[in-house]
Amino acid sequence: MSGPLKGLRVVEMAGIGPGPFCAMVLADLGAEVVRVARPGAVPDPHDVLARSRTVLPLDLRDPASVQQVLDLVAHADALIEGYRPGVMERLGLGPDVCLARQPKLIYGRMTGWGQHGPLSHAAGHDINYIAISGALHAIGRSGAAPVPPLNYVGDFGGGAMLLAVGVLSALFEAGRSGRGQVVDAAMTDGAALMSAMMYGMKAAGQWSNQRGENLLDGGAFFYDTYACADGRFVAVGAIEPQFYALLRERCGIADDPAFNAQRDRAAWPLLKLRLAEVFRTRTRDAWCALLEGCDACFAPVLDWDEAPRHTHNQARQTFCTLDGVVQPAPAPRFARTPAAAPIRSTTATADEVLARWAPAASKAATA
């Protein structure tokens, strides 16, 4: 592997959702990630989140397997796990034990509710974690129920991404202090943090609790999606006056005085209906030919099959194919230390990994 994290060694305790996503991001950027999985685990090309890893099948009910993990920890920079609080401690792999073996270890913990608090031991999923942060309430149409935004906000944005930031921040600090630490990444915290701008706007009187009636939640007619003549959709986000003026010009409504009331919230519902009528007059491709690439803040709404074929995504190589599976390529881009293309995960034994991580110790053990 190559990339800015080349040389970083990470032990990943296999799980689902945000933990694997965080490990994938680290592996994409060059870290060597060893995934401790259940016995019999084999790499699955359809499990995109598990790419670019060394898979180490171990039965953690066996003390010998636990010892093998600790042997890896002794030569690792970081460990990430996504179990409920207390599980790693019961396995004999809690932070105190691991930090005793490797004092500079960064021990990343990924949970929904966090390591403490009245809900910390309860089961849950993304939808539950973003519900108590305020984020879920804000997503959806006016007068309708909140809409789950897939599992982007809790699992991946507020969870995995924040865990990656936390681990890398702690690694930076450990480089100065020589001491490791625990990173407690809770999806409830992360989802709340991602809502920072909205909390600020609400305090300023610029955002309300009324779902689907605000600037960025579909309330504004100039920041929404619209159906076209062929049933496909386009997205517009012409907030700034100059971009809104260009949208009006290209859509043929520049001379319609009704659309002068861009910032009149009382006029938004009617203008949304009016603009919807405009977009229904052409197919999505016709609108793309008219608006895509100009400053009207326009884009077609693409499905999973269309997105990898879009000319912009192809030019930037935003997607790649591994073992016949189309998937997002590593991001972000680095000028001097670019990340390599994702590779197929392979299985290994603990001894094989230790032969790479601690060759002198491995040779001594087999002598």
Rank of each mutant, 00 (worst) to 15 (best):
212 G>R: 14
130 I>V: 14
40 G>T: 06
122 A>G: 06
107 Y>W: 06
341 A>F: 07
327 Q>S: 01
58 L>P: 13
243 F>Y: 06
102 Q>W: 09
199 Y>R: 13
38 R>T: 14
22 C>K: 00
353 V>T: 08
136 L>S: 12
88 M>V: 15
307 A>Y: 06
42 V>K: 03
3 G>T: 13
64 A>G: 07
143 G>Q: 01
292 E>A: 10
285 D>V: 15
134 G>I: 04
179 R>F: 06
20 P>M: 05
297 C>W: 13
2 S>G: 11
341 A>S: 05
112 G>M: 10
134 G>M: 02
146 P>L: 15
190 G>N: 00
274 R>W: 03
363 K>E: 14
325 V>S: 00
299 A>D: 11
248 R>T: 09
70 L>E: 13
149 P>N: 08
32 E>Q: 13
46 H>F: 10
53 R>G: 01
260 N>F: 03
294 C>F: 06
21 F>V: 06
210 Q>D: 09
70 L>M: 12
177 S>N: 12
309 R>Y: 11
338 P>M: 02
140 G>L: 00
1 M>H: 11
158 G>K: 01
244 Y>V: 04
356 R>Q: 08
177 S>F: 12
131 A>S: 05
329 A>G: 00
87 V>P: 00
194 M>A: 01
12 E>W: 14
366 T>D: 07
268 W>F: 03
294 C>K: 03
258 A>D: 15
211 R>D: 02
